[in-house]
Amino acid sequence: MFDWLPYNTQVVLVGVTLLGVCSGVIGCFAVLGRRALVGDALSHATLPGVGIAYLLAGGKHFAFMLLGGFVSGLLGIGVLSILKRFTRIREDAAIAIVLSTFYGGGIVIATVIQAQASGGQAGWDTFIFGQSVGMIWDDAQWIMALGLVTLVIVALLFKEFKLVAFDPAFAHVQGWPARAIDFTMMLLLLVAVVTGLPAVGVLLMAAMLIIPASAARLWTYRLSRMLFLAAAIGAGSGIAGALLSSSVALPLGPCIILFAALFFLTSLMFAPERGLLARAFQRRRDRIALLADLRAGKEPI
């Protein structure tokens, strides 16, 4: 289908499609669980780990960097939950603290990398801004493997995730390990973040999680449909963004997010029932009907 494109772009397309699907699906649970900004904190929190892994491996070792990002993301989750449970620091402040200090640490490590190996820096800074050019077949394989594992887990645990996201206390009373299930959702969020880093970058990864899910939410009242829609919007923005990025030589991450934002804006305007236009029309219809009733001298029930 895309064989008119260079091989590298084809690889990128496959990668970003799966990435869009995966972050769309996980993003739904993040958005519904009021964890949209936690996703942002986690994506920034991965940076020091990615950098340290780069230093330890002495170069761009893709899987090792992802692992490093995962570990420091876990640390971020740990700090968030300690602050929330044991101190007077509120969740919003805790998120901002983790985000900014971990990110600062990441930048400091970035300068170490810069100082250490001249020219070896290539491949590292893609994790900050995100880039597609660096995406070669091996990297894409990792992204696909992680994305598929995530999707399989969500498919298997759909019922459990839905229950815990909606009513954790009820889940606990029914005998489900609600906390463990919740933590699994958090881990998948982290996996999605780490998977997306090399393509989209630390700065915009959260958008990949939040925007497609929020757009999908406007169209439907069913969780399953919301997941499919978010996946479709994520994949669509991924493909469109990658094509735009390769044709006008702009960075991949922002291009993807631009299309996602476009999807969101369209949904916000035109979605049936929840869209702004639909709601304005509904209000107008209600008003006309009410006024008609009033003039006809109808009694309210």
Binding site: A36, L37, A206, A207, I210, C255, I257
Partner: peptide, 20 residues
């Protein structure tokens, strides 16, 4: 949309526009 998602949608979109 919930409050946190609203904030997230707005600033990441604006930032993406800015970066582009």
């Amino acid at each position: 949309i919930a409050e946190d998602s609203s904030l997230g949608v707005v600033y990441t979109s604006l930032f993406a526009i800015g970066v582009v």
